[in-house]
């Protein structure tokens, strides 16, 4: 007794301005297109002033809008320090997809704290979860044409490795519905680059 219900609990974390909320929204819209039950929950407010932004996407027969500590199937980290901060959400069964390019918090920038070594942080994460896919998503986004497309890069990687109940084509459709013009091209490129990450 006490087995977690089948479903996909995907926890997103990042820094204000990185577009985590747009990523969760696109994923949620893809789920609706694929007729998969979905709940997306976001925290707005103070978090947007350069603070941590967390959101969650729950797919499958789940009704709960939040993910308890230790119960995320997948953790999407948009920034390495925030990935390790959210590690409490993971278990030894979790998949973690994380960008490795740091955004230093104000406490570090002002010399009141030290930013941990990225390699050390990723090492800790790798030891604690089933699988870690860590790469410089910001560089890939830049390569696609805009640093802001980091969210789409990471969505691409999620669609490759997340084993979600719908395919990349549905997410691409959701991206097309959300974005237009040259921004769309950048996003589709970013998605492709993220998808290619092994």
């Amino acid at each position: 007794m006490g087995e977690l219900k089948q479903g996909w609990r995907v926890f997103f974390t990042g820094v204000g301005g990185q577009g985590t909320l747009l990523a969760t929204r696109v994923l949620g819209e893809a789920a609706v297109l694929a007729d998969v039950q979905v709940v997306v929950s976001e925290i707005h407010g103070m978090a947007q002033r350069g603070g941590v932004v967390e959101s969650a996407v729950l797919l499958g027969a789940l009704r709960s809008p939040t993910i308890a500590d230790g119960e995320a199937d997948i953790l999407m980290g948009f920034e390495p320090l925030e990935t390790i901060r959210a590690l409490r959400k993971c278990s030894e069964r979790s998949l973690v997809i994380s960008s490795t390019s740091p955004i230093v918090p104000f406490t570090v920038a002002s010399g009141r704290a030290r930013y941990p070594e990225v390699a050390d942080m990723m090492g800790t994460v790798a030891r604690r979860v089933a699988r870690l896919i860590a790469f410089d998503a910001r560089a890939l986004a830049r390569h696609a044409g805009a640093e802001l497309a980091i969210n789409t890069v990471l969505l691409g990687t999620l669609m490759r490795h997340g084993n979600l109940p719908f395919g990349r084509d549905v997410v691409e459709r959701a991206i097309r519905l959300r974005t237009k013009g040259s921004v769309l091209d950048v996003n589709l490129k970013a998605f492709e680059l993220g998808y290619e990450v092994e």
Binding site: M1, R49, L81, P116, T124
Partner: peptide, 23 residues
Amino acid sequence: HLEYQPPRVEGGPELPPRPPNLC
């Protein structure tokens, strides 16, 4: 009175906080 194993939650290292800030 059901048997239940809560999720195991491990603490992490101490990290620099990221408080919100005036822009």
